[in-house]
Design a binder for these strands. Structure first.
Lengths: 350, 350
DNA sequence: GCGCACAGCGCAAACGCTTGCGCGCCCAGC
DNA sequence: GCTGGGCGCGCAAGCGTTTGCGCTGTGCGC
């Protein structure tokens, strides 16, 4: 009779199967199992195959804790994301998650929404020691708080913007603004408004500032005098856009064209225009930024930016940085594209 | 003078400070430091205070890997989320993240979008051994795949739906459907359509099935004969809603009211109606589900469901389950609420 | 005045891996 | 036939915490 041995062939609740179990059944040491499973040299092909098959059969998975302790690595990447319920950030996150998953990295998220949470995050740095790298999706951070990121002790990558000297992936928002306003100028508009945005706490984000600058530059190059009252600032989102448009319509000389910070803002503006019975683009043209999934449906002219790709690129950057130490360009600017649809046209012949 | 070139390998103040460092400086053993920092008994108040202050000063943080290895716990909770770029899921995630962060738990996300990724996820179970619990945000899973969740070896909680016998947090979607359709019936409508949805791959999700059932029940109770052609199924989202409405309008006897699976679908329907010049609610009433942030702006009547709260509740449930083993009710149904706004009204007197 | 209980703390054994090093063994080259 | 060099693998020392247990010293009851 063979000595009674625990028959936990069928994995299930109960003590997890350890590397030692695999090693024993394979008749090798745990060292060899470890090397075999991670495709490290020093294991013959047959042995490696046998071990892998066995591990598979026992549905063995390494303990990330133990592995991490021993190797000094976590296999995780932290992602700091503000306003996760906004399309832009969620999509960016999806892009990041995709490449990280393909690289067998886990994704830890830190939702940092608002100034208070931001302060808390940078004060406590809860991500410390928990990941091999940190990806921060663009959010406004005072220099003083940003400095604390160095304490985190791992690579930091910025997605969708820039921060200090950290490697980043973004689009050229000044160019975006110039392009959008330029399109309107090219159509013959001279009274061009811009709807700027701020978050719920009144902070203007860097992307907004850049797009505004582009807008100003485009008007300047066209020799169009600035009309400050055509620049309105509202809270993000559809609501803000709607309110902004109301303000613009109430002007003595309303604009003939509007450049909205984002497509969502533009949709809000469109809503107000429709309610007010103002023809688009007959009386007023509208252009946004993003190419939000529903923009096509609204026939909205926009400057498309590759959001998911920005996330994916940032993820890849983080991984490369981790592996090669110093690889690939570490300041990436992705291209944008003007998508002309039905909400922009020449100004009404006056 | 130190001609030594600047080391770029100093991303932080040298090697991380360990518990042993804290212990030495405090003149105690690491055991005491460990207990002190985690507020465990066996440490005098003065000692504890001294240790905490010191740890703070050295900005010490425990190694999650080491701590995890020793304690057999990870301090992490995995969240499985489909379609993270949709408002519903992102908001649910935000709710979960909030309570978990407050409980000092980290959140690992697994974006499982589509059948292929789903199969892959349940086949490999990449979350295994990586978290103390898993929260699955409702997605359709074949029984055969769902069974594999047991292999994960930790608590599983379902948010926004049900799955097998796992504890869950959700709303009563049958009731939601009954309520929405009931509202329309109450207004006097008899030709009530429903726009159902499927995901990009043609699967109808459980919530949709439930709401449809509620719809049928409401009509049945009112003695309204079913007109199968009034039940159309389209892909999620605004686009789907728009297309569905087009189909309904092309019917020989179009409905006088439409119950859309969600607010986003309803918005698509509204868009089509506006384009077609159909008065709302004059000629056709529209009701959705969710109370999406922009629904108010569209003056959309809807059945509100507490999305973020569902997430938060699921998170809390997971934590309680972890701590007390078996606490609190583990099958929670949150209330919904009919929000009557401007897109529903009595049918046109015929 | 003698124990006894208990508070406060240290010792050291896990926890489950990774990895530097060393030891056979087989084969090729002289 | 000897030797040198790999290759394939095992040994064992960590990796930084947690935690059961044991030790000391104080205060209290009798």
């Amino acid at each position: 009779m063979t000595p009674e041995s625990p028959q936990r062939d069928t994995p299930g609740p109960g003590p997890a199967v350890l590397m030692a179990d695999v090693a024993r059944r394979a008749g090798v040491s745990t060292a060899t199992v470890s090397r075999a499973l991670r495709d490290m040299p020093g294991v013959s092909a047959p042995t490696r195959a046998r071990i892998k098959a066995l591990a598979d059969e026992l549905s063995y998975v390494v303990s990330p804790e133990a592995s991490g302790l021993a190797s000094g690595t976590t296999g995780r990447i932290a992602v700091v994301v503000p306003k996760i319920d906004l399309w832009f950030f969620a999509t960016m996150l999806a892009g990041i998650e995709g490449v990280l998953r393909d690289a067998d990295m886990d994704v830890l998220i830190y939702h940092v929404d608002g100034a208070e949470e931001r302060r808390w995050f940078f004060e406590r740095l809860p991500a410390r020691r928990k990941a091999d790298a940190v990806i921060v999706i663009a959010l406004p951070v005072p220099e003083q708080e940003a400095e604390r990121l160095d304490l985190i002790g791992v690579q930091v990558v910025i997605a969708g913007g820039e921060l200090r000297d950290y490697p980043h992936v973004r689009v050229d928002d000044v160019d975006v603004g110039r392009r959008a306003a330029g399109h309107l100028v090219g159509l013959g508009h001279r009274d061009i408004a811009m709807i700027r945005t701020q978050d719920g706490e009144g902070s203007v984000w860097a992307a907004d500032r850049a797009r505004s600058q582009g807008y100003c530059e485009a008007l300047g190059e066209a020799g169009i005098p600035r009309r400050p009252e055509l620049m309105v600032t509202v809270d993000w989102g559809i609501h803000g856009g709607a309110r902004a448009m109301e303000r613009l319509l109430s002007l003595e000389h309303p604009p003939t064209a509007v450049f909205a910070y984002s497509d969502e803002v533009a949709m809000g503006a469109l809503l107000t225009l429709r309610r007010a019975g103002v023809g688009v683009p007959g009386e007023i043209s509208v252009i946004g930024v993003d190419d939000h999934p529903v923009s096509e449906l609204y026939d909205l002219t926009t400057v498309r930016q590759p959001v998911e790709l920005q996330g994916a690129t940032a993820g890849r950057l983080a991984i490369d940085l981790l592996r090669d130490g110093e690889a690939s360009p570490d300041r990436v600017t992705l291209p944008t594209e003007l998508v002309v649809r039905g909400t922009t046209g020449p100004p009404r012949a006056s």
